[in-house]
Amino acid sequence: MSEPSARAQFKNVDPPFWVAWNQALASIRVRFFRQLITSVGIALGIAFYASMQTLRIAESSLTKDDTKMQWLVATSLLMCLVGVTNSMLMSVSERFREIGTIKCLGASDSFIVRVFFLEATILGATGSFAGATLGVGLSWIAARASGADVAFADCLGITLGATVIGMVMTVLAAVAPAIQAAKMPAAAALRVEV
């Protein structure tokens, strides 16, 4: 019954990049406080990890034995992972309905995922960088106070590493549920009440 000729014209192209970018920016601007809280959650997790990492370096400069500190760093990384994932999952699942609506307007699945990717990249980058700087800074002061020394290069390395780790975590934790939501039938996404 359905002729291929009728389907052939169903050529859906994605809108230009700035459409997704504007949507992501609008979402951050309008939900500023909600997004700020998410971002602070990310920052605190990363700050914890970054400070543990800095203290480990400080400690190893004194005792040469940092197995205990390595355990602490690993634990802090795990806690940070749980914290970031939790913040992002919450903030994405609040928006299933919005995802369903955008699908009704004709958005492709990849457009929806792109919007969440951009938002998470912005939130993840700012939150992680702020957290990493804070964590490294505070631990450095503490280390100096107790007579240990941490090289500037180490501080810089830890800050960058923690920022990247935080960004990757944030993006994965946002994009995974966004992909799931984009793939579900629009009716199911619209039904989700939060």
Binding site: M1, R7, N12, K103, L105, G106, D109
Partner: peptide, 21 residues
């Protein structure tokens, strides 16, 4: 069938086009 196209045969992208247009 919408406009005599069986919508079960459409891909996700074609469905998005249908919803859009």
């Amino acid at each position: 069938f919408v406009n005599s196209v069986d919508i079960a045969e459409l891909t996700a992208r074609e469905l998005a086009f249908l919803r859009c247009h």
